[in-house]
Simulated scan of single mutants.
Amino acid sequence: MMRKPAGFERPNARLLADGRRLHLSHGPIDLIIEADGAPAEVTRAYRQAREAFETILHDLVRELPLLRSGNANRPRGTVARRMHEATTPYRPEFITPMAAVAGSVADHVLANLIAGRVLSRAYVNNGGDIALRLNEGVFRVGICDDPVTGAAGGMILVRPDDEIGGVATSGWRGRSHSLGIADAVTVLAPNAAKADAAATMIANKVDLPGSLRIEREPARKLAPDSDLGTRLVTTGVENLTRAEIATALDNGETAATGYLERSLFKAAYLSLAGDRRTLSPASTITQNADHIREEPVCA
């Protein structure tokens, strides 16, 4: 979900204290970027990322009514088109392009970051939704089981030949509203926009429709500009029985399996109340959280 920032302040760019990572922010968009390569190549890459970032928020705000409506018309902006393309495969189920906004922004900045540059590794982290390019080595990140506690429940291990270019996480405890009750659903896909859309859809399906143990409110009551309109979003989940947890995860896994069979993503990790399900190549996601040193990614 994106709100128009007051005053449309200028985009900000700065190197973080470690001297390696670039921080870009503008209104609700907050990116952490890192590129590995020769110093001159990294400097040029960061300049390209800053230039690409300048107009993203303004361009998106111009098309927000269309992006929030779920209208099938194709938007004009580059990032908006990425959002539209990532979410179109899930129609006629309910979805709007806003389901892929964070991943699409990350993909756009990454594409400009690496254009014409010689880099061994690069990533753009947009609040937990990550676009990455890996030419050598391994990319590791801890999976966030619970955005409230920040607990890590697993490990993502990506290698260059895995054809994974995006990681995204969704759930009712995260930054955006969810129709389901998943604590977290993390998805790996060819790009971050596709991962973002798939994570949103799978998280919506981890659910117990009609259960009195789940508190829900109309989305527009919580956020008047929500693309979810009057649909009920999760605001609280009471203690669930083991059978209820299993049923909710079964629902999510069934939906995820269908999306996986259509090649809409590469791997997924579903978490609810300490129970987990994984749809993944054995070497890509592990549920063993022991000795995870990487900071878990929470959306």
Results as ranks from 00 to 15, higher is better:
residue 178 S to E: 09
residue 156 I to L: 15
residue 74 R to M: 05
residue 33 I to K: 06
residue 246 A to Y: 00
residue 263 S to M: 09
residue 126 N to V: 07
residue 264 L to K: 03
residue 112 N to Y: 11
residue 106 A to I: 07
residue 155 M to N: 00
residue 158 V to M: 03
residue 215 E to G: 15
residue 13 A to T: 05
residue 28 P to Q: 06
residue 60 L to G: 07
residue 38 A to R: 10
residue 219 A to N: 09
residue 230 T to W: 08
residue 48 Q to E: 13
residue 246 A to H: 06
residue 5 P to Y: 08
residue 18 D to C: 03
residue 175 R to G: 00
residue 131 A to F: 10
residue 205 K to M: 15
residue 232 L to G: 02
residue 155 M to W: 00
residue 267 A to G: 07
residue 87 T to F: 10
residue 243 A to Y: 02
residue 118 V to E: 13
residue 4 K to G: 00
residue 22 L to S: 02
residue 250 D to S: 09
residue 73 N to G: 05
residue 29 I to Q: 08
residue 142 G to Y: 08
residue 107 D to M: 05
residue 269 Y to Q: 00
residue 168 A to D: 12
residue 230 T to V: 13
residue 272 L to F: 03
residue 142 G to I: 08
residue 4 K to D: 14
residue 257 T to I: 10
residue 9 E to D: 12
residue 270 L to M: 10
residue 99 A to C: 03
residue 240 L to E: 05
residue 171 G to F: 05
residue 254 T to F: 09
residue 118 V to Q: 13
residue 232 L to A: 14
residue 54 E to L: 12
residue 40 A to L: 11
residue 202 I to V: 13
residue 105 V to E: 13
residue 84 H to S: 12
residue 99 A to W: 07
residue 292 I to M: 10
residue 4 K to R: 14
residue 69 S to W: 08
residue 163 E to Q: 14
residue 246 A to V: 04
residue 269 Y to R: 02
residue 55 T to K: 13
residue 154 G to R: 06
residue 50 R to W: 00
residue 198 A to C: 08
residue 174 G to N: 11
residue 132 L to H: 03
residue 234 T to N: 11
residue 275 D to R: 11
residue 79 V to Q: 14
residue 284 T to L: 15
residue 23 H to A: 12
residue 95 I to C: 13
residue 69 S to M: 11
residue 145 D to G: 14
residue 275 D to H: 09
residue 166 G to H: 06
residue 283 S to A: 14
residue 279 L to P: 08
residue 245 I to R: 14
residue 288 N to K: 00
residue 41 E to C: 00
residue 129 D to Q: 05
residue 52 A to F: 06
residue 40 A to P: 00
residue 183 D to Q: 04
residue 97 P to C: 07
residue 169 T to W: 01
residue 179 L to N: 06
residue 189 A to E: 10
residue 11 P to L: 11
residue 147 P to R: 01
residue 45 A to M: 06
residue 198 A to E: 08
residue 64 L to M: 15
residue 208 L to V: 10
residue 170 S to K: 06
residue 282 A to W: 06
residue 16 L to W: 01
residue 107 D to S: 01
residue 222 L to P: 06
residue 122 A to R: 02
residue 18 D to L: 02
residue 19 G to M: 01
residue 40 A to H: 04
residue 223 A to P: 00
residue 79 V to H: 13
residue 243 A to G: 00
residue 124 V to G: 11
residue 281 P to L: 09
residue 189 A to V: 07
residue 196 D to V: 02
residue 52 A to N: 07
residue 210 G to E: 08
residue 55 T to Q: 12
residue 224 P to R: 04
residue 274 G to Q: 04
residue 293 R to F: 14
residue 24 L to N: 05
residue 116 G to D: 04
residue 214 I to T: 04
residue 21 R to Y: 01
residue 16 L to R: 04
residue 160 P to K: 09
residue 189 A to S: 11
residue 138 V to C: 09
residue 198 A to I: 03
